[in-house]
Amino acid sequence: MHMADALLSPAVGLAMDAVAVAAVGVSAAKIKKDDLNEKKIPIMGIAGALVFAGQMINFSIPATGSSGHIGGGILLSGLLGGFPAFLSIAAVLVIQCLFFADGGLLALGCNIFNMGVVPCLILYPLLFRPLLKGGVTAKRLSVASVASAVIGLEIGAFCVVLETLFSGITELPFSTFAALMLPIHLAIGLVEGLVTAAILVFVHKMRPEIIGASLAGQKLAAAVPVRKVAVVLVALTLVGGGALSLAASGSPDGLEWAIGNAFNRDDPEAGLGQFEENAALSSVAEGAAGVQENTAFLPGYAFASDGENPAGTAVSGIVGAAITFALACAAGLIISKVKRRKNAEASA
């Protein structure tokens, strides 16, 4: 479920990054108020490390012969409480991004939202905790874990679909993408929920105070801040989205470029002119409508059908790119070689 930079547009990536930064800031502030601050942080670290170790533990899923591994948002929330769990998950995601290339640097905001904010800051206070209101029992713990894990993963997967579609990098139709992602994550969520339940029930049996404390800690903090977090998140998304769409409409880049390019790869500006002539648009409003209409089935009227044969320019472009590639390789190789020789001389 980790999203990559390559599938994101800068607007979506940056907006979600802003949301993630706000969520981390609010969570850190919440924990600071807690007296147990100092003692709790190593526990949070080890809980994050557990998510790593957990991913290495393969377990066999009964009757299927396949194996799965645990994810963690609801598990950590049950052990630590929502805000500390969120910080741990965020730390895990940063490490996965930096050291394992699992999810990109720009995509961190999306990943932290889908896998951190959703389970820890939304589902834990709104679903997990209310389900345990009548006192913690093994049965209630199991129901709460499975329900929260399944719903959390489904929402997260749906967010992946939305973020990808808003970025506009893939051609996958919305319904197809959703129909692929949601059932897969329903199954994963079910397994994750069962594993989470098993672990939480075991911990509750051995050390009931751990889960009791996380629930109690959350209770002290839950009065106002959850609403505050929600408000901050919504505001940031709106501001980010608004500012970025303004920027998008104001700049002659992006969309128009793509259209211009589709019409005339040599000279996109002329291409844009052609496009506008073709469309014979009189008013600005109609122009905008035309742009939208045309982007929907945009991909290139020009080239193949166009008599003016852009194949020549395509070939020269490809040759240019190949030369660039070769030059970049050569630069790397030469530097390596020079360095190696220098190092050899130094050690000799």
Partner: peptide
């Protein structure tokens, strides 16, 4: 080769409790 599903709770739970204790000692 792989853990059985029904041992998952006690395995990871045990790992976790050991980890918590260890973290407290280190801290």
């Amino acid at each position: 080769r792989a853990l059985e599903m029904r041992h998952m709770g006690s395995f990871v739970g045990g790992l976790l409790l050991r980890g918590f204790d260890r973290a407290e000692r280190i801290h």
